[in-house]
């Protein structure tokens, strides 16, 4: 083989490499436009197909603070039993006669909440179940650096456990304290509305076990669902509305003391 030949081969190699690289570059430049073009058609189709938007109503007036929901959630979703990890929990608020507010949630309310303030000092007291609010403008989804947490097409905020890098930024971004770092999987963990249940037609575990039907789960786009009826009948409120997160968990009987 002469030097010419080697040179020619080399030139060929360079040419093909450049072509490959250029092609990839061009492809990646064009890709976003391609997606936009697809999206326009896709969006219309999806709107017709997607008639589900999951949400939850919580009736503070009927919650008795038995903690069954928090317990069932841990069993159903394999959440560590230690009292630092909760996908849902129940808080007891006690407004005292002197105006001070005492908030308690020992072990997330599992085992039933017990009143620690003597009756004579109590102005009023009520229970507030808490969980991920599945915000429409979810700050956690906005903050995740890699796209490991997202809002599913049916409105549930989920965590991709195989993709999460465990940076805790989403935990910092959540105003409701609904996220935690799972010590076993070492990824961010949170309420999924029991996604594995609701997609099979079952209720979330917390709703299933609630003895007083204080949690109403359903499809916000289904006019006949119990949830929509609940929202029509009751004056509902969301948590921390000033943060503009637009939660999909609605509370009836929310008092101004609740934070």
């Amino acid at each position: 083989m002469g030097t010419e030949k080697i040179k020619e081969n080399r030139r060929k190699f360079f040419k093909s490499s450049v072509a490959l690289l250029g092609g990839t570059l061009l492809y990646s430049l064009l890709k976003p436009f391609e997606l936009i073009a697809q999206n326009k058609e896709g969006a219309v189709k999806e709107d017709k197909a997607n008639d589900t938007l999951w949400g939850m109503g919580v009736d503070i007036e009927t919650c008795i603070g038995c903690g069954k929901c928090a317990e069932a959630c841990k069993v159903e979703n394999n959440v560590p039993k230690e009292p630092f990890y909760f996908r849902t929990w129940v808080e007891q608020y006690t407004v005292k006669n002197n105006g001070k507010v005492k908030i308690e949630s020992p072990n997330g309310g599992i085992g039933g909440l017990k009143q620690s303030v003597p009756d004579k000092d109590i102005f009023k007291s009520f229970m507030v179940p808490k969980l991920c609010n599945h915000c429409t403008n979810a700050p956690c989804v906005q903050a995740c650096p890699v796209g490991a947490t997202f809002i599913s097409p049916d409105g549930v905020v989920l965590v991709d456990a195989t993709y999460c890098i465990g940076c805790s930024y989403c935990i910092q971004a959540c105003p409701y304290g609904a996220r935690f770092m799972n010590p076993v999987t070492k990824v961010a963990d949170k309420c999924t509305f029991c996604y594995h249940r609701i997609t099979k037609g079952l209720k979330p575990a917390c709703v299933e076990v609630c003895p007083t039907n204080a949690r109403i789960f359903g499809n916000l786009r289904d006019r006949k669902s119990n949830l929509v009826k609940f929202l029509q009948k009751k004056q509902t409120e969301v948590l921390k509305p000033h943060l503009n997160t637009h939660p999909k968990v609605f509370y009836n009987g929310l008092s101004s003391e609740v934070k």
Binding site: A143, C144, P145, V146, A148, I165, V187
Partner: peptide
């Protein structure tokens, strides 16, 4: 918590993060 996945920040950076 998953240092080996840190490359994902460059592979799929979330534009809003």
């Amino acid at each position: 918590q998953h240092p080996l996945r840190s490359y994902e920040i460059f592979m799929t950076p979330n534009p809003t993060s």
